[in-house]
Structure formats: structure tokens, C-alpha cells
């Protein structure tokens, strides 16, 4: 795409690029306008350089309004994320941000639980920074080496619990095990979760059983990212149980778990 005056409005500059794990990258982007508006739970929609017809949605994992930067952490999955991983500091990056509807924030002295599964962990970081020691963050990972952002979470002062599928670190097993214990020990006022669908389904069911409000950040394949092309449908209940196809990019990615048709 030519760099005309319109495209120019969407360009940010990579400030730093760091490899976190075998597959995950940490990119900080200078984009003052977007950083000014961003709130936790929103996402950036990045167009990789090259012959791509679609943007790639990536959650915002850090918002620095003073420096005018947004941070994203992503895993290489296919061609588009591979191209994004080749970016270096100083490169220009085409992004639409911030997009979507973020998390509901309670007063920051409330007790909350954050749950991040795999590459669903990054959007939990701004919440951990906001709630600090009042948050318990439970992260699930395949294995110790694939876990991301553990030091960043520790720095926020929140209590962190790592779960691995293979037992290489922390709790051997699913995030729902420590979640059940935490729910018993000290009832939170909100549970926030992002990760694979089966995990979100279990977390939502546990929250519902205990009558605790729960917000989940969902994934769906996207086009425009702004709510116009209607491809990113997700069924939710509206009115009296009527099922409505909402859109993850605009009505979400964060939804009240009770409204989602699991």
C-alpha cells in the first residue's frame, strides 16, 4: 500500500522489539493519539507489511499515556504474525487503535481475580497494574518456557499463580484449580478472563455458580475491526433471552460472561 496522506494517519513507529519466548514477541509502539484514548481490554488492529488483505487483532498489553506508547505481546501463529515479528525498532507500523469495548473497572481497592490462558495473558497486565495488590492473577501456560510476562505481573504487586499443563513450573494443571481455592479463601468482586474458549467456559460457569460478576475477552476472526463488515459474530443474549449475533470487535472483545451464549 502506498504511503499517502491517509495511510499516514494510521502509522505508528516501533519503539522497541523484544523476543520473550520461542514464539512470543513484545512490541512497544509510538502512537500518541491511540495511547491517549486506550483503556484496558481494547485491542490494536495491525496490518502487516506485504500482501495481506486483512489486519491482525492483538490485545493492548500496556498503555503509557505520558510516553505516548502502546505495548502488545503476540505469538507467531501464521504468516501475518511472522511478518510482525520481523519488525525492528524504528520501523513504521500500520495500526488502527484503540478498538473495541474494554473491561469495566471497579474502584482500584476492590479485590479481583485475573485469569490469563496462554496468549490470552497479555490483556490482563493493565488490570494488574490498576488493581495492584488487590488482584490475584492466575496464568495458565503449556510449559514454563512458554509463560509470558510473569516478571511484569510480579512488579505490579499482585499475587501471581502460574499453572502449567506439564508441571514444569507452579501448579501442575488447569487454572480452574487455584481459581476454586481463591474463590473459597477470599471472595472477589469481579473475575476477568482471557484465553482459550474451554477455559473461559469453565471460568464463566464457576463465576456464575458463585454469583460473582465475570468479564471475558473473546477472540474471533475479524475484518474491519470497527463493527461495519459484521464478520466477527458472537452470540449473546439480549432482552428476554433472545439470541443476538453481536460483534467481537465493537460490542467486545470484552463481554459480560452471563450474556455470552456458551
Amino acid at each position: 500500500m502506498t504511503n499517502d496522506k491517509y495511510t499516514e494517519k494510521l502509522m505508528g513507529t516501533v519503539r522497541s522489539m523484544r523476543k520473550l519466548t520461542d514464539a512470543a514477541w513484545d512490541m512497544v509502539i509510538d502512537c500518541p493519539e491511540a495511547a491517549k484514548k486506550a483503556v484496558p481490554g481494547q485491542f490494536a488492529h495491525l496490518l502487516p507489511e506485504g500482501n495481506y488483505s486483512l489486519r491482525r487483532p492483538i490485545s493492548i498489553c500496556g498503555i503509557n499515556k505520558e510516553e505516548g506508547t502502546l505495548r502488545i505481546v503476540f505469538e507467531v501463529r501464521g504468516e501475518g504474525t511472522k511478518t510482525l515479528a520481523s519488525y525492528q525498532a524504528g520501523d513504521r507500523v500500520n495500526l488502527l487503535a484503540p478498538l473495541g469495548h474494554g473491561f469495566t473497572l471497579l474502584p482500584s481497592d476492590r479485590r479481583v481475580i485475573l485469569i490469563g490462558g496462554g496468549i490470552g495473558t497479555p490483556p490482563m497486565l493493565p488490570l494488574a497494574q490498576y488493581y495492584g495488590e488487590n488482584a490475584v492473577c492466575i496464568c495458565g501456560s503449556r510449559t514454563e518456557k512458554a509463560a509470558v510476562l510473569q516478571e511484569d505481573f510480579a512488579k505490579t504487586g499482585c499475587k501471581t499463580i502460574l499453572c502449567t499443563d506439564d508441571g514444569s513450573a507452579g501448579v501442575h494443571g488447569l487454572v480452574t484449580v487455584p481459581l476454586a481455592e481463591e474463590l473459597q479463601a477470599n471472595r472477589p468482586e469481579m473475575i476477568y478472563a482471557c484465553g482459550p474458549m474451554p477455559m473461559l467456559r469453565s471460568v464463566a460457569a464457576m463465576a456464575k455458580e458463585q454469583g460473582i460478576p465475570c468479564e471475558v475477552s473473546l477472540e474471533e476472526r475479524m475484518g474491519c475491526g470497527v463493527g461495519a463488515c459484521l464478520v466477527c459474530a458472537c452470540n449473546v443474549y439480549i432482552n428476554d433471552g433472545e439470541i443476538h449475533a453481536a460483534h467481537v470487535c465493537k460490542d467486545g472483545p470484552v463481554f459480560d460472561a452471563e450474556r455470552v451464549v456458551w
Binding site: 486483512l54 474471533e220 463488515c229 458472537c234 452470540n235 449475533a245
Partner: peptide, 23 residues
């Protein structure tokens, strides 16, 4: 109309496929 179930979009060489189904 609620349209078709998601995923409703796929990237293709120099194009896309969509199956929104007139939502």
C-alpha cells in the same frame, strides 16, 4: 437476520472469503 455462524472470514491470496449471510 442473525447471519451465519462464525468464523465468517478467511484470508486468501489477494482477497478474502466471507460468509456473513446478510446479518
Amino acid at each position: 437476520q442473525n447471519g451465519n455462524p462464525a468464523p465468517r472470514i478467511a484470508e486468501t491470496p489477494s482477497g478474502i472469503l466471507n460468509s456473513v449471510g446478510l446479518q
